[in-house]
């Protein structure tokens, strides 16, 4: 969550609760809403690393609130995050480890493993279909995220076919 908070603070200084609201507003249902404790813990770490700094702002008849702002080091970290290509999807696949190791132990044959995994992926896809249907069509961000998940799942299924062809 660190870079997301840095990005929001690059826009304007904010206190913890405002950051939570901003994340919810921007991503809608496309992103699980983080709890406020998580946000404060992350802000604390960012502060310790010198990427953000906090100032106490006095409030009439309430305790002071801490408003966070980005430091120059925080700005550099944010730039580095934006410039770096994002990590690709999974490189190590747990199912593949199973596929390689299970037959060695004699506990399952590969065909059974592949078939079971395929059924699981198709059930997952059905779930994503239903999720996509009950998502507000105006929520483009959420729909794109679901579509991305579907495309990944399709790739996993195509790859199961390849495993089945080559290992049978």
């Amino acid at each position: 969550m660190r870079p997301f908070l840095l990005a929001l603070l690059a826009k304007e200084p904010a206190h913890g609760y405002e950051l939570k609201q901003a994340l919810e507003q921007i991503f809608g249902s496309a992103y699980p809403s983080p709890n406020i404790g998580q946000i404060y813990v992350t802000l604390g770490r960012l502060e310790k690393d010198g990427l953000v700094r906090a100032v106490d702002v006095e409030q009439s008849n309430r305790p002071n609130k801490k408003v966070y702002y980005l430091t120059a080091a925080g700005r550099d970290a944010l730039d580095a995050w934006a410039e770096e290509p994002a990590e690709g999807p999974r490189v190590r696949d747990e199912f593949f480890m199973k596929l390689v190791l299970a037959p060695m132990t004699g506990i399952a044959d590969r065909m059974t493993l592949i078939n079971r995994q395929r059924r699981h992926y198709i059930a997952l896809m059905r779930d994503l279909n239903e999720l996509s249907e009950r998502t507000d069509p105006a929520d483009r961000v959420a729909l794109l995220l679901i579509e991305g998940a579907m495309l990944h799942l399709q790739a996993d299924l195509d790859w199961l076919d390849r495993c089945q062809e080559d290992l049978s």
């Binding site: 496309a30 699980p32 059924r119 059930a123 059905r126 998502t135 679901i146």
Partner: peptide
């Protein structure tokens, strides 16, 4: 035919949203 079976249902989140398809990395 190497497999033939009903499509199962996968229910991890009865009222899930798109946010559940990503993992929040802290």
């Amino acid at each position: 035919i190497v497999d033939d079976g009903a499509v199962g249902t996968f229910r991890r989140r009865p009222k899930g949203t798109a946010g559940d398809v990503v993992e929040l990395r802290g």
